[in-house]
Amino acid sequence: MSVEATLDPSAAAPQGPGGPLLKLSNVESYYGPILAIRGISLELARGQIVTVLGANGAGKTTILKTISGVLDPEKGAVELEGRPIQRMAPDRVVRLGISHVPEGREVFPFLSVLDNLRMGAFPRTDRDAVQRDLEKVFGYFPVLKERAHQPAGQLSGGQQQMLAIGRALLARPKVLLLDEPSLGLSPLLVKEIFKIIRRLNDEEGVSMLLVEQNAHIALETAHYGYVLEVGRIVMDGTCRDLMKSDDIQEFYLGMKQDDDRGTRRWKKKKTWR
């Protein structure tokens, strides 16, 4: 099910037969003077959830920032539906259909919940459709409707996360970039948020690139996964395969106890290019 088919029937038909919706080829980005990601190549197919796993500082957020245009890559290409978007201004990237739910929510604390959501639809001019989408978002996150007129800064962490996701959805994105939606939330809330993420994917067909430290829930949610270590992709596969992998079980799911902790290494030869 394509995104346009459910969210925007009037939009142009998907271009390129079967090509990936979002494609990164050999992307390198610096974070200040530091080379944060090197030679990253990944693909997101229409209607899928793809996850990027990795520890703190592995470069997950840098990948998302490079896609959304906040960082300009030094090398490589980012393509949306076959169209290069690297080095574009962030507001143009949003208009082309990529919405970013940033790490740590980043809501507008002194604006009401409703105004926050309306800001999500800033580039859009179709008021009636925005109103319909607003109702849809309230359907997924009823608590936002209850607190629509309160300043967003007064919401709890989980509610702010819901607001950040709802706000991004109002741009009617082709791709939703999710940066650690589980960060700082209780396990119960994490479950709830990810249930909604899955529903959004199933019911609305929103394609998502999900960056997570919580490998367990990410692998349960996504279709395909990449593993990132110090700026490189060291492994990729369907989430089902990844979950079975020894390395993933050991390092990301904590299912195996390691005897010699001092020598934590990947057992397989690293598959980076």
Partner: peptide, 14 residues
Amino acid sequence: QATSQNMLAAYYMG
């Protein structure tokens, strides 16, 4: 207002 409260998020909103 949004820009003055959170510039980065304003960028993300387009």
